[in-house]
Amino acid sequence: MGHWLYRNIIEPGKLPLLLALASFVLTFVITRVIVRLIRAGKGPFGNVKAGGLHIHHVVPGVLLMVVGGFGAVSSSRYGFGAYLSAVLFGIGAGLVLDEFALVLHLDDVYWTEAGRQSVEVVVVTAALVGLVLGGFAPFGVNDLTDQELQDRGGVILTVAVNFLFALVALSKGKTRTAVFGVIVPFIALIGALRLARPGSPWAKRLYRRRPHARARARLRAYRHDRRWAGPSRRFQDWIGGKPDDELTRPVTGRR
């Protein structure tokens, strides 16, 4: 483990990225726990206010991202400054993306259906950064054997082909399949081979004169959504908390 960590993380200068990812995920988890405790009226936590103004945690998140970002570009990949900047940036990114839906909609939608977008963005971001971090062709690794070069070349080729399949899946309207297909082999291939979702660029262009294909695509999308909508919602509720009922949600104050 120590040899792998040194060869694939420390030597190519990826330790700041590892620290940023760990800080990002940990900050999101802690923030969600605290916010859910505030929502339930438990614990010593409460909303932060200044002069009657509710300060959302996206505000300190932006400040930390600015400090960490400028600190990172002004330092090398090695040393305490780079590591500290990475941690600050990861914490800031966790706070900002936890309220991504608020920034997107410019409205307090944290505990609504629209607020689920924050959880989706955090999961996708962590997955993509993990892909970069765990890449088997890190820049900066020296003294590779011929076998290691061959193995890494094969991995690069596999990832490149898989990425092309992911682009096809994305054009078919299968966003989650495309994203996770870049990480997990064969998922993107399955998404690329299956029928496109109705309304996707692929369906609009290639199913325009194929009514049978359009009908099959609508039927498959209906069955897929009916099967997976429930488990997907329960997974998101487990991570980010269940949204409020729109009929009972208070007009002001999200927690």
Results as ranks from 00 to 15, higher is better:
residue 200 S to H: 14
residue 35 V to R: 08
residue 34 I to V: 11
residue 6 Y to K: 04
residue 70 F to I: 02
residue 13 G to N: 05
residue 247 L to N: 09
residue 190 I to M: 09
residue 152 R to S: 11
residue 111 W to P: 15
residue 243 P to K: 01
residue 70 F to Y: 13
residue 231 P to W: 14
residue 133 L to G: 02
residue 135 G to C: 06
residue 182 V to K: 05
residue 250 P to Y: 06
residue 171 S to G: 01
residue 142 N to L: 15
residue 227 R to G: 01
residue 20 A to S: 11
residue 207 Y to W: 02
residue 236 Q to E: 15
residue 137 A to H: 14
residue 23 S to K: 01
residue 50 A to I: 13
residue 90 G to L: 04
residue 36 R to P: 13
residue 56 H to Y: 14
residue 99 E to W: 03
residue 113 E to C: 10
residue 209 R to H: 11
residue 194 R to K: 08
residue 89 F to V: 05
residue 29 V to I: 12
residue 104 L to T: 13
residue 50 A to T: 11
residue 182 V to G: 13
residue 7 R to Y: 14
residue 9 I to Y: 08
residue 42 K to V: 06
residue 9 I to R: 14
residue 142 N to F: 15
residue 101 A to C: 02
residue 255 R to N: 15
residue 29 V to P: 07
residue 109 V to E: 03
residue 98 D to T: 05
residue 116 R to F: 10
residue 149 L to C: 09
residue 254 R to L: 12
residue 4 W to A: 07
residue 184 V to I: 10
residue 100 F to P: 02
residue 169 A to S: 12
residue 135 G to E: 03
residue 51 G to K: 01
residue 45 F to G: 12
residue 10 I to M: 10
residue 168 V to L: 10
residue 224 H to T: 15
residue 216 R to H: 09
residue 12 P to L: 11
residue 47 N to Y: 13
residue 94 G to K: 01
residue 86 A to F: 03
residue 142 N to E: 15
residue 85 S to M: 04
residue 93 A to R: 08
residue 82 A to H: 09
residue 96 V to P: 05
residue 241 G to W: 03
residue 20 A to W: 01
residue 132 V to D: 08
residue 25 V to M: 08
